[in-house]
Amino acid sequence: MPAGTPLQRAVTPVTAALITMLSLGGCASAPEAGSTAPARAPIPLELQADAVATREFGLLAGGGWAQAWALWNASAQQVIRQADFVRLNTVCRPALGVPYVVAATTRIDQETVRVDWRRADAVGSNTLLYQAGSWRFVPDAASLADYRLGVDALVRKRRAAGSCH
């Protein structure tokens, strides 16, 4: 897919599961020597990264906190432990069932893809990095800064802003 080509769709847990299954379909083994079966073309980098972003957004919209955290890159995972991320989103639950809509997926370089999204009235973008053989989701800088506050302080901040449901 050319850089900057928009992909528009609502990301729901069902959509995320379907895209994940489809992306895994490209992992079939190569045909045996002498086989006449055509070789499968590799899945383009943007589609691989987009599948991870779609899965992440579906998990976030559906409350799959531990699974969403598991898709993050290692440096983001160092900012907040998985158990704390789950506790944060359980104690101060964001709106569930509101889908993310991916507006565009843009390849920055061979190891970096940016995904632009909207969710209700909110808009944003996230980066995905290709590390150690897989695409990893990177929460945005503002979210990482909030996570550095610690769970209790962030819950107080979110409650004061009325963002707990």
Rank of each mutant, 00 (worst) to 15 (best):
A30G: 11
V155H: 13
Q131G: 11
E111K: 13
R81G: 15
I108Y: 04
N89Q: 11
A28E: 10
L59P: 05
L47C: 03
Y100F: 11
W117T: 11
N126V: 08
T106E: 07
L144D: 02
A76T: 06
P94R: 12
L60N: 07
R93V: 15
G26F: 15
R118N: 08
W72L: 10
T105C: 07
W69T: 04
V86W: 00
A49H: 06
I108H: 05
A30N: 09
A53Y: 05
V52M: 07
L59I: 01
G64S: 06
A132P: 00
L60S: 01
L59C: 01
V113K: 09
A122V: 10
L71H: 09
T36K: 13
F137T: 00
S35D: 15
P139F: 02
P94Q: 01
D121C: 07
N89T: 02
Q77L: 05
N73F: 00
A37Q: 15
G63D: 04
A68C: 08
G26S: 09
G97Q: 02
D116L: 14
A49W: 08
I80Y: 13
G58R: 02
A39I: 14
A30Q: 15
A70M: 12
Q67T: 02
S75T: 14
R119K: 07
F85D: 05
S75I: 09
L128M: 03
T90N: 09
A66T: 03
G62W: 04
